[in-house]
Amino acid sequence: MSATGPGAPAQSATADREIVISRVIDAPRELVFEAFTEVRHLSRWWGPDGFTTTTRSFEFRVGGEWDFVMHGPDGTDYPEWISWTEIAPPERIALLHGESRGDTNAFESVLRFEPEGAATRIEMYTVFPTKELRDEAVEKYHAIEGGRQTLGNLAAYVAEIVRKGAER
């Protein structure tokens, strides 16, 4: 049951095409943002558990692209492509993500980085072109669990940077 009328929460027009994943990461916002925006960091943590990433090209700017391959633990290669559509350091990144440039099934994501005390809350808000593509991403590719694992890998990676910094 959903409420309607003045003061009721609005149902998003894209709700059936969305995935929203968030996590609090015990690191400063600037470091978490940097880990998302520099290829030397991304290649160390990007992807779900057991995956590795090989970058073919990377240019972090509005209109720039990240062309890469994710290597699954079973040896399967997944070509990936991201184009940055908005960059507002250190608060927000918007991007288009598909298998390659021109992918008609590419999805849009917005990442928000919010300070939460000394930590950072990161929220990944993703909208797929259709409900069917969203459902396929969830059911076939385990997108929700994969997204959670990816943010877990980010959290572990920046925790290691913070720990090494504290040792100096």
Rank of each mutant, 00 (worst) to 15 (best):
S22K: 14
V24E: 15
V24D: 15
I25M: 13
D26V: 04
A27N: 10
P28I: 12
R29N: 08
E34P: 00
E34H: 12
F36Q: 08
F36C: 14
T37A: 15
V39G: 09
H41P: 07
H41Y: 06
L42G: 06
L42M: 08
S43F: 03
R44E: 15
W46S: 05
W46D: 04
P48V: 04
P48Q: 09
F51H: 13
F51R: 07
T55D: 04
T55W: 02
T55M: 01
T55Q: 00
R56C: 02
S57E: 12
E59G: 06
E59M: 00
R61F: 02
G63W: 00
W66G: 02
W66L: 10
V69G: 08
M70L: 08
M70Y: 04
G72Y: 09
G72T: 12
D74R: 09
G75F: 10
T76H: 15
D77A: 15
W81I: 02
S83H: 04
T85G: 12
T85W: 08
E86K: 13
I87M: 08
A88M: 09
P89K: 07
P89R: 06
P90D: 03
E91P: 00
E91C: 01
E91N: 09
E91I: 00
R92C: 08
A94Y: 01
L95N: 02
L95M: 11
L96Y: 06
H97A: 12
E99W: 03
D103L: 10
F107E: 05
F107H: 10
E108Y: 00
V110A: 05
L111N: 08
L111V: 10
E116I: 09
A118W: 04
A119I: 11
T120Y: 10
I122R: 06
E123Y: 01
E123W: 00
V127S: 03
F128W: 12
F128S: 14
F128R: 08
P129H: 06
L133F: 11
L133N: 12
R134G: 06
R134T: 02
D135P: 01
D135K: 03
E136H: 06
E139P: 00
E139T: 12
E139D: 13
K140P: 00
K140E: 09
Y141Q: 13
Y141C: 04
A143F: 06
E145T: 13
E145N: 11
T150W: 03
T150Y: 01
L151A: 12
G152L: 09
G152S: 11
G152F: 07
N153T: 04
A155N: 05
A156T: 10
A156Q: 11
Y157T: 05
E160L: 13
E160S: 12
E160T: 08
I161R: 10
K164E: 13
A166T: 01
E167Y: 02
E167C: 03
